[in-house]
Simulated assay, not measured.
Amino acid sequence: MPEPDGAPSGRDDRSQRQRSDRASHPAKPRGGGAQGHGASGRDAPLYGALDLGTNNCRLLIARPAREGFRVVDSFSRIVRLGEGLSHTGRLDEAAMDRAYDALASCAERVVRKGLDSARLTAVATQACRQAENGAAFIERVRAGTGLRLRIIDPAEEARLSVEGCLNLFDPRAEAVLVIDVGGGSTELSWLRKQGREMKTVAWMSAPLGVVTLAERHPEPDDVVGPAGEVWYEAMVADMGAAIAAGGIVDADMRDLFGRGRGHMVGTSGAITSLAGIHLNLRRYQRDRIDGLWMTRKQCEAAADRLKALGPDGRAAEACIGPDRADLVLAGAAILEAVQRAWPCERVRVADRGLREGLLLQRMREDRKPRRRRRRGRQPAAAE
C-alpha cells in the first residue's frame, strides 16, 4: 500500500519506495484472497485506488497477483480536509488547498506510472459527504487534476473496509467485528460465520472519527494528570454514546466474543500507531504491524503510554509524528469505547482497508467473463 497509514506524513517518497520494494515480494498477501484466473505478474494491467478521507489522502497502484495483488506505487499524506468542519459545516479553504495539492501529486503519479484512468477508482468519504461545499470541491479537483472522485455513502465505505481486511480473519473464528476508524466517522461491521464464509450481519457508521472527536474534546495542558484522565474518559463516553445510538444489539454475537470465539480487526492510522507503540518500534515497519494480534490489555497499556508521553513525546515517536500527535489518543479512545461495548480479548491490527477493498473489487469485476451473445437462427420475417 501507500506509505504506512500509521506513519507520520512528510516521508511520502522515501517510505513509498521502501514499501513498494517490500510489496514486490510480500511476506503475506496484500489485500485479499486468491485472485483466480486471468493476467497476473508483470504483464498484468495496473489498477489504482484513491481514497480522500477526512484526515488523509491515499493512493495505491498495484497489479493483480495470484494471492491478491502486488503494490507498484503508493502515496499517503495527512491533509486534514475535515479540519473545522464539525464547527462550520463547510470545508476550510486552507484544508481544501492542502487536499488539492496532495491529489495533484496523486494525478502526477498516475500519469507517470502509465495507469489507465479507466482502471483508477477514486472515492471521497465523510468530509465531502458532510460538507456543504463538498461537491463543489470534488468538481474543482476534476477540473484541475482530471481526477474524478465519487463520494461514497457509509454503507459502501464499511463494505469496502471489510473487503480489504478479509484475509486477516482468523479462520477458526465464528464472529468478527471490523472497526474502521476514520477522521470524520467510524464504521463498524459485524460478521458471523455462515457455512464456510463470514457474512456481514450488521453494520453502523458513527459520526465520530479522530478529527471530529479531537475537535470536540481539546486536549488539556496537564494531560498526564487527573484532568487528562477526565478528558480521555469523556472521549470514550462520547464514542460509547454513538455506538449505543446505532442500536446494534445481538446477545448471541456478544456471547461469541465474550467466550473467545470472535475477534476484532482494527484498521486505521490510530490503531497502527498503537501497535507501533506496543512494539517499541524505532521506525514504522508494516511487515510487523499488519496482522499483529494484540490483547485488550495491551491496547490499554499502549494508550496509557501515549497519555504519559504528552503531546511533544507523541510527536517524537516514529510511528506517530507531529501530524498525528494530537489525534492518536482520540483513536485510542474510539477503540476503547468499542471494546467496552463489545468485550473481546483479541484485536488484529490491519494496515489495509478501503483502498485494498476498492482494488480487489475492481479486479474481481474485470475477471468476470463477458456474456457472449448466443448465435442462433434469426426469427423468420413476418409474412
Score class of each variant (00 low, 15 high):
residue 7 A to Y: 10
residue 8 P to W: 03
residue 11 R to T: 11
residue 15 S to R: 15
residue 20 S to E: 15
residue 20 S to W: 13
residue 20 S to N: 14
residue 28 K to V: 10
residue 29 P to F: 02
residue 32 G to D: 12
residue 42 R to K: 13
residue 51 D to C: 10
residue 58 R to D: 01
residue 61 I to N: 03
residue 63 R to L: 07
residue 71 V to R: 15
residue 75 F to D: 05
residue 77 R to Q: 09
residue 78 I to R: 07
residue 82 G to T: 04
residue 86 S to E: 07
residue 87 H to E: 12
residue 92 D to V: 11
residue 94 A to Y: 03
residue 98 R to W: 07
residue 98 R to I: 10
residue 100 Y to V: 04
residue 102 A to C: 07
residue 102 A to W: 01
residue 108 E to R: 14
residue 111 V to I: 15
residue 112 R to I: 02
residue 113 K to G: 03
residue 115 L to E: 02
residue 116 D to Y: 04
residue 118 A to Q: 15
residue 123 V to G: 04
residue 127 A to S: 15
residue 128 C to Y: 05
residue 129 R to P: 12
residue 138 I to W: 10
residue 139 E to I: 02
residue 144 G to I: 10
residue 149 L to R: 09
residue 151 I to N: 12
residue 152 I to N: 00
residue 152 I to L: 02
residue 154 P to Y: 00
residue 156 E to C: 08
residue 159 R to H: 13
residue 163 E to W: 00
residue 165 C to D: 14
residue 179 I to F: 05
residue 181 V to E: 08
residue 182 G to P: 03
residue 187 E to S: 04
residue 194 Q to A: 13
residue 195 G to V: 14
residue 206 A to W: 02
residue 207 P to H: 00
residue 211 V to F: 00
residue 212 T to C: 12
residue 214 A to D: 08
residue 218 P to D: 06
residue 222 D to G: 03
residue 227 A to F: 11
residue 227 A to P: 11
residue 232 Y to R: 12
residue 234 A to L: 04
residue 243 I to R: 09
residue 244 A to I: 06
residue 246 G to F: 05
residue 246 G to Q: 10
residue 247 G to E: 14
residue 250 D to K: 08
residue 251 A to P: 01
residue 251 A to M: 13
residue 253 M to D: 02
residue 258 G to K: 06
residue 262 G to H: 05
residue 264 M to W: 05
residue 265 V to F: 01
residue 268 S to I: 09
residue 271 I to F: 07
residue 271 I to G: 03
residue 273 S to R: 00
residue 274 L to T: 07
residue 276 G to N: 09
residue 279 L to S: 00
residue 279 L to C: 08
residue 281 L to S: 02
residue 288 R to W: 08
residue 299 C to V: 09
residue 300 E to L: 12
residue 304 D to P: 04
residue 307 K to G: 03
residue 309 L to Y: 01
residue 315 A to S: 05
residue 316 A to I: 05
residue 319 C to F: 02
residue 321 G to M: 12
residue 323 D to Y: 03
residue 326 D to M: 06
residue 326 D to G: 08
residue 328 V to K: 08
residue 329 L to G: 06
residue 340 R to P: 02
residue 345 E to A: 06
residue 347 V to S: 10
residue 352 R to D: 04
residue 362 R to T: 12
residue 365 E to P: 15
residue 373 R to I: 07
residue 374 R to H: 06
residue 378 Q to P: 01
